[in-house]
């Protein structure tokens, strides 16, 4: 475990906690895409099925359980407790446009044609595009609350740190996982535009709003 990996995981956890605290404190999920959060819950569920079959480390198990809990609590807050504040009108990304290609690709391009391996591949591909409904929602409404941009920043930072982690692992352990790396690069690219806006606007104290 290298420093990029640990910081990446911490950043991922921080992103999820920021989102939960934002919703909880404001008692509102305005501006948050429920569809993206459902996709993340689906990502963790299909990837962490190995919790039941494969023990890797205490750290690994605890983090997986925490990630699953955060994802499901977030979905519950959006579609349950605070559903009246949920902006379903603007959360209009068509999920089938993501799910159909992702399911197709996970059957075509995987390491082994077994149910668990296909589900793992599905989760990797799905994670790389799961944020799109959220980014779509921001581009549709033309703005995002500052706290929502912090959430997106840490989620993007996690991806960037994982890329550094893979470069490190390739050089030190000769380890690489091409499915994860290619999807990770794609996923990180989706955040580039947002990073630019975050640095040029939010960090200078302005609200993120699109022209």
């Amino acid at each position: 475990m290298n420093v990029f990996r640990i910081l990446g995981d911490v950043s991922h956890l921080l992103a999820m906690v920021i989102l939960l605290v934002k919703i909880w404190r404001s008692k509102s999920c305005a501006g948050i895409s429920g569809k993206s959060q459902i996709l993340f819950a689906l990502v963790f569920t299909s990837r962490y099925l190995d919790l039941l079959t494969n023990f890797i480390s205490i750290y690994n198990t605890v983090m997986k359980v925490v990630f699953l809990l955060c994802a499901y609590v977030t979905v519950y807050l959006i579609y349950g407790k605070f559903r009246k504040t949920f902006d379903s009108e603007n959360d209009s990304f068509r999920l089938e446009f993501l799910l159909v290609p992702v399911i197709g690709l996970s059957f075509l391009e995987n390491y082994s044609f077994t149910p668990t391996e296909i589900l793992w591949t599905f989760s990797i591909y799905l994670e790389s595009v799961a944020i799109l409904p959220q980014l779509f929602m921001i581009s549709k409404t033309g703005e995002a609350e500052t706290i929502t941009t912090h959430y997106l920043f840490f989620l993007g930072l996690y991806r960037a740190l994982y890329l550094a982690n893979w470069i490190w692992r390739y050089h030190t352990e000769n380890f690489y996982d091409q499915i994860a790396v290619v999807s990770g690069v794609v996923q990180t690219i989706f955040y580039c535009d947002f990073f630019y806006l975050y640095i040029t606007k939010v960090l200078k104290g302005k609200k993120l709003s699109l022209p």
Binding site: R5, D9, H12, D50, N54, I56, S57, N60, M63, K64, F67, Y111, S112, E117, W120, Y162, N165, F175, D177, I179, A180
Partner: peptide
């Protein structure tokens, strides 16, 4: 060659 990856990452 292809092999099932070691899934120690989150």
């Amino acid at each position: 060659k292809r092999k099932v990856s070691v899934k120690d990452e989150l």
